[in-house]
Simulated assay, not measured.
Amino acid sequence: MLRNPVFFTLFILALACTGCASATGPWVKLGGQRYSVEVARTEAERDRGLMFRDELPAGHGMLFIHEQEGPLAYWMKNTRIPLDILFFDHDKRLVSQQRDVPPCDLGDACPPYPSDAPAIYVLELNAGEAERLRLENGATIEFAPDIQPAP
C-alpha cells in the first residue's frame, strides 16, 4: 500500500535523474550532445582552467567566457588530460578547433594552441569528442538559460 504518493513521485523523479549530470547545473549543447560544464568567466578562473586535474568525466567540459571577441590562444600548462579546444564567435558558431591536444608538464614552455579566427567562447572537452561528434566549423553551440552570454 502506497502511503505518500507525493514522496513516491519525487523519489521516482530523483531516480530518473541519477547519473544525468546535465539535468541540473550549467550545460551546453553541441552536435546534438549535452555537456555539463563548469563556467570560467573571470581571468583567474580562465587562467586556472582544467589545470592539475587527473580526469574530466564523460559528458563534462569547461566553458570559458571572455569579455570581448578577438584572437585567442590556449595552452596546456599543468594540464594532465588530453583535450579538444573549441573556439566560438559571438554568434556561438564554431570558428576553430584544436583537437587531441596533449597534456603538458613543461610549465611556461608549453606551446600555445591558437584559434584560426576571432573567438569569445572556448569549450574544452575530453580529446576525441569533436571527432566523435563530427564537428565542422560553423556548428553552433547552445547554452543553458542560466549561462549568461558575453556582453
Rank of each mutant, 00 (worst) to 15 (best):
L106C: 12
Y35S: 11
L10K: 11
E43K: 08
E67V: 04
G49I: 04
E131V: 06
F7T: 12
P82M: 01
L63W: 00
E129G: 06
Y121G: 05
R41E: 11
P151A: 11
P112A: 07
L2A: 14
Q97H: 00
L133S: 13
G70L: 04
P26F: 01
H66A: 03
R3L: 14
E124H: 02
V28S: 05
L30E: 09
Q68T: 14
R93Q: 07
Y35F: 15
D89K: 02
I120C: 03
A119R: 01
H90A: 13
M62F: 03
A119I: 00
S22L: 01
E69Y: 04
W27H: 13
R99F: 04
T18K: 05
A21K: 01
G138C: 06
M76S: 12
A21W: 00
F88K: 09
P5N: 07
Y113L: 02
L125G: 13
N126V: 09
L56Y: 10
D89H: 05
C104M: 05
G61F: 00
H60A: 08
M62T: 03
R99Q: 15
D116Q: 09
L2N: 15
L56Q: 07
K77M: 15
G19E: 13
C110H: 07
L56K: 06
H90F: 04
P102S: 10
P71Q: 07
V39C: 10
R3W: 09
Q33V: 14
Q33L: 11
V28Y: 00
Q68G: 12
R93V: 00
I147Y: 02
A119C: 10
M76P: 15
L94I: 00
L83S: 08
N78E: 12
W27G: 12
S96P: 10
F7Y: 14
G70A: 03
T42C: 05
Q33M: 08
D84V: 11
L133C: 14
A150L: 02
C104L: 03
